[in-house]
Simulated assay, not measured.
Amino acid sequence: MMNRVVLVGRLTADPQLRYTPAGAAVATFTLAVNRSFTNQAGEREADFINVVVWKKAAENVANFLKKGSLAGVDGRLQSRSYDDQSGKKVYVTEVVAESVQFLEPKGQSDNQNTNQSNQLNDPFAGKGIEIEDDGGLPF
């Protein structure tokens, strides 16, 4: 069996860091991930994916990521349920991250709000120089 999820997107809010009674760090955040197609109005929609990360990685996420940060998540999909305060069963599906990659320098997301949609489409935009294909490649 295989259960693998790889996502790249922007945080919709600052991560929430908590500690279990045993002292294990756990951070939660929501990642906005653009869909690869547009809707009938020609707009690109996004999916909002809940992510959970544990231990040292959770502390790193809380310390270095914030709302708008571009991040890559590698993990697994998990479904669970619980009874809320009124006794109603609540179902939750989330990604449990094995690793979280910070995909831009700290503080850069502050300046990226105007280019946010372009950055999600091409995370390498504005990095380095553009190389033109002269057709001379042997493959």
Score class of each variant (00 low, 15 high):
39 N>T: 09
106 K>Y: 13
131 I>V: 14
68 G>F: 11
124 F>P: 07
33 V>K: 01
107 G>P: 01
86 S>N: 06
103 L>G: 15
75 G>F: 01
134 D>S: 12
105 P>Y: 04
133 D>I: 12
98 E>I: 07
52 V>I: 12
32 A>D: 06
76 R>I: 05
71 A>K: 03
40 Q>V: 10
107 G>Y: 00
120 L>S: 15
90 V>F: 05
131 I>W: 06
91 Y>A: 08
102 F>C: 12
48 F>K: 08
27 A>C: 06
111 N>L: 14
44 R>E: 05
89 K>Q: 15
37 F>L: 07
80 R>I: 08
72 G>F: 13
103 L>A: 14
123 P>T: 03
56 K>M: 00
85 Q>I: 02
30 T>R: 13
133 D>E: 12
31 L>P: 00
111 N>F: 15
78 Q>D: 08
86 S>D: 04
124 F>V: 11
56 K>V: 04
94 E>H: 12
132 E>M: 11
98 E>Q: 10
132 E>V: 07
121 N>C: 13
58 A>D: 04
82 Y>D: 01
65 L>P: 07
123 P>N: 02
31 L>W: 00
49 I>F: 01
54 W>S: 02
55 K>P: 00
45 E>V: 08
134 D>P: 06
81 S>Y: 09
132 E>Y: 06
79 S>Q: 15
93 T>H: 05
119 Q>Y: 12
101 Q>K: 12
106 K>M: 05
26 V>Y: 00
125 A>V: 13
37 F>Q: 09
86 S>H: 02
101 Q>C: 03
81 S>N: 12
49 I>A: 01
98 E>W: 06
134 D>N: 11
47 D>K: 09
78 Q>R: 15
82 Y>G: 00
43 E>S: 07
101 Q>N: 09
115 N>G: 14
132 E>K: 10
38 T>G: 11
103 L>N: 15
125 A>G: 09
100 V>I: 10
105 P>H: 07
83 D>F: 02
50 N>H: 14
95 V>N: 02
91 Y>W: 13
69 S>D: 06
30 T>D: 11
35 R>C: 06
